[in-house]
Amino acid sequence: MNKIKVLIVDDEHDFAATLAERLCLRSYDARIVVNACETLSLIDKIKPDVVLLDLNLQGISGIEILMTLKNVSPEVEVILLTGHMDIARSIEGLRLDSFHYIFKPFDIRELTEKIDAVTAKHGRKQGNEHA
């Protein structure tokens, strides 16, 4: 069984790297991208199951990436990571079909449960164990 591929898009490298390591420890195939511009090509290349997207990206707005992503690869699940409730609510207002968010800081179990839940729809089941 293939591991669930998770792409973490966050310009805070320290955070993204640590989170990726923790997810790897929990048997997810986690990669990070800190440059917003590379995100779309990387998504196209590695075809992740779930994108963890921080909306506070520098250079390009996380919302723009989100919109493009939803247009290009609607099957990719996106979980927004945000410290801003306002932004989450704004996006809620955009009436996107598959949309999830989780507030920073969060418990790792909260995140893995959510990842498992959104990927379960696609018949993927991660039998990972929790640390």
Binding site: F15, T18, L81, P105
Partner: peptide
């Protein structure tokens, strides 16, 4: 929240 998230993850 952001630095807190880093502390939390670390």
């Amino acid at each position: 929240n952001n630095p807190l998230a880093i502390i939390n993850e670390k």
